[in-house]
Design a protein around this nucleic acid. Structure first.
Length: 436
DNA sequence: TCTGGGGTCCTAGGACCC
DNA sequence: TCTGGGGTCCTAGGACCC
C-alpha cells in the first residue's frame, strides 16, 4: 500500500474511433475514406471516422436516413463485426501489458484501459505515452491517444485533450503542468465533456453558471453534494486531483446478464417468438456459467416498434423468482418460456425481445431449495452436459448445439441483417488474409 | 421497409417490523 | 378516538457509462 499523500499517476489509453479503426486494419483502402460502423441490423451509426465526423454525421443516426447522402459523399457504412473488434481489443490490451504489471492495468471497456504508473515514479510520462502509442500501432495497427492525470477523471480529461487538440501530438500529461496551466486547459473545455457529467446534469450545471471544466473544478464538493448527489461530488474531487474512484484490476462478476436483439423482420406469433427467446437464453446462460454464477430470477421482455405511431404499442416485461438458483440452460429456458407465454398478447407486431438473468450468486454458494429437485448423481450429469454444450459452441460457433429449437444456424426470419459485414480476418482460418 | 445492446450506481418511496 | 419513531429490505426509475 502506498501512503495516501503520494500523488497518483494514472493513464487512460483510448483507441481512436475504435470500430472504424478495426475495419481499417485489414482494409487500408478505407483509410481517409469517410467511414461509419452500424449497430446490429444495420440500424444506426455507432462509430464514426474523423472524416465522417467532419461531414457532420451524427452519432446514432439511422442508416436508412443516410443512405442517399452516403452515395453522394462516398460515405461507407460497415455492419458491425464484434468478433473482429473483440479479438483486436484483446491484442490491444495485451500490448499495454508491457508497460505495467497486471495489477496496475484495468480494462475499462472494449477500447479503453487505465494504467497506474504510481509505482513507477521516475518514469517520464510523456515519453511513455509516445512509446505506448507507437507500440500499439506497431503491434495491432490501431491508433490510440494517451492521457495522464492524478485521478481517473483527470486521465479521462487528459485523453480528451490529447484527442481534440492536435498540438499535443496524441499524448497529454496533466500531472506535468502547474496548477495554473492545468486550469488554463480546463477553461477551454465545456463542462459536458467531463466523465460522469451527462446531458441532464450538464444542463443543470450550466443554468447555475458552471460552463467549463475549470468552473466545475472550482466548486465546493460539499455544496455539490447538497445540490446534486454524491456521484457528482466525487467527480469534482477527482478533477481537483483526489483519486476517489478505485482501480479494478479484475472485473467483478456481473450482477445481471442481459441478452437481447432486434429482429431482422417483425414477429407475430408465440411460436415464432419462442425461438429468439431460447436463443437469447442460451447465450445468457453461457455467460452465466463462464463466470461460475447461478441465477435466482429470470426476466423476459418484448417490444413493438415505438417509431411507428400507427401500431398499437405493447412492450410487456416480467420477472420471476425461481424456487432454486440455476445455471442450467434447460431449466432457465423452461422458465423463460413460461414467462413468455404469460406476457405474450396476439395481434402485435413485435420487433425485439430479450431475456435477463438476475440475482446472480456464486454457483457453489447458491442456496438449493428445501426439496432438491435432482439427486446428486443426476446433478453431476447435468453439469457435464452443460460443459459439453459450452465447449462445442465455443469451438464450432454459437448454436452448434442447443436446447430444443433455439434455432439451428442458418435460416431464421428473426436473425440480423448485416449487409456489409467484413470477414472474420483474425478469428477464422477461412477468412485469413493472404499475402502474395 | 429500415431506428443498438449491455451494464452500474444511487435515490425515493412503500412494505413491513418492533 | 387518539395514532410514534426508527429501522431494514425491496423495487422502480433516473442518471450515467461504453
Amino acid at each position: 500500500m502506498k501512503p495516501p499523500d503520494v500523488p497518483r499517476r494514472i493513464a487512460l489509453v483510448d483507441a481512436n474511433s475504435f470500430f472504424c479503426s478495426c475495419e481499417r486494419v485489414f482494409r487500408p483502402d478505407l483509410e481517409r475514406v469517410p467511414l461509419v460502423v452500424l449497430s446490429n441490423n444495420d440500424g444506426c451509426v455507432v462509430a464514426r471516422s474523423a472524416e465522417s465526423k467532419a461531414l457532420g454525421v451524427p452519432m446514432g443516426k439511422p442508416w436508412f436516413e443516410l443512405r442517399e447522402q452516403a452515395k453522394q459523399w462516398g460515405l461507407v457504412g460497415m455492419s458491425s463485426n464484434y468478433e473482429l473488434y473483440g479479438d483486436l481489443s484483446r491484442r490491444f490490451m495485451s500490448s499495454l501489458g508491457c508497460f505495467v504489471p497486471p495489477e496496475d492495468q484495468e480494462i475499462y471497456s472494449i477500447d479503453e484501459s487505465f494504467l497506474d504508473f504510481t509505482h513507477q515514479p521516475h518514469l517520464d510520462l510523456t515519453a511513455t505515452g509516445h512509446a505506448i502509442k507507437q507500440r500499439v500501432r506497431q503491434w495491432t495497427g490501431l491508433p490510440v491517444c494517451v492521457g495522464f492525470g492524478a485521478s481517473k477523471t483527470q486521465a479521462k480529461l487528459a485523453n480528451h485533450v490529447a484527442k481534440k487538440q492536435p498540438q499535443w501530438g496524441g499524448v497529454c500529461d496533466l500531472t506535468a503542468l502547474t496548477e495554473q496551466e492545468r486550469l488554463g486547459v480546463m477553461k477551454g473545455i465545456e463542462v459536458r465533456e467531463v466523465w460522469g457529467v451527462g446531458r441532464r446534469i450538464a444542463i443543470q450545471l450550466m443554468e447555475r453558471g458552471v460552463l467549463t471544466v475549470a468552473d466545475l473544478c472550482a466548486c465546493d464538493p460539499k455544496r455539490i453534494r447538497e445540490r446534486f448527489n454524491v456521484v457528482l461530488e466525487r467527480t469534482v474531487r477527482e478533477l481537483q486531483g483526489e483519486a476517489c474512484i478505485d482501480f479494478e484490476t479484475t472485473p467483478p462478476p456481473k450482477q445481471q446478464i442481459i441478452a437481447s436483439r432486434s429482429f431482422g423482420a417483425p414477429l407475430y406469433t408465440l411460436q415464432d417468438l419462442a425461438e429468439p427467446i431460447r436463443f437469447h437464453m442460451a447465450r445468457a446462460a453461457e455467460k452465466l456459467r463462464r463466470q461460475a454464477g447461478s441465477a435466482c430470477a429470470v426476466g423476459v421482455w418484448l417490444e413493438t416498434n415505438r417509431f411507428r405511431p400507427q401500431d398499437v404499442q405493447h412492450s410487456p416485461s416480467r420477472t420471476v423468482t425461481m424456487p432454486e438458483a440455476s445455471d442450467d440452460s434447460a431449466v432457465l429456458t423452461a422458465w423463460a418460456m413460461s414467462v413468455l407465454k404469460a406476457i405474450y398478447r396476439p395481434g402485435h407486431r413485435y420487433v425485439k425481445a430479450g431475456v435477463m438473468l438476475l440475482d446472480i450468486r456464486e454457483r457453489h454458494v447458491a442456496q438449493g431449495s428445501l426439496f432438491d429437485a435432482l439427486p446428486p448423481e443426476q446433478d453431476l450429469r447435468r453439469e457435464t452436459l452443460m460443459r459439453v454444450l459450452d465447449k462445442a459452441n465455443g469451438k464450432w460457433g454459437r448454436s452448434t448445439m442447443g436446447i430444443g429449437s433455439a434455432g439451428i444456424k442458418g435460416d431464421r426470419a428473426w436473425t440480423m441483417q448485416r449487409a456489409n459485414l467484413s470477414p472474420a480476418y483474425s478469428t477464422s482460418w477461412r477468412d485469413l488474409r493472404e499475402v502474395t
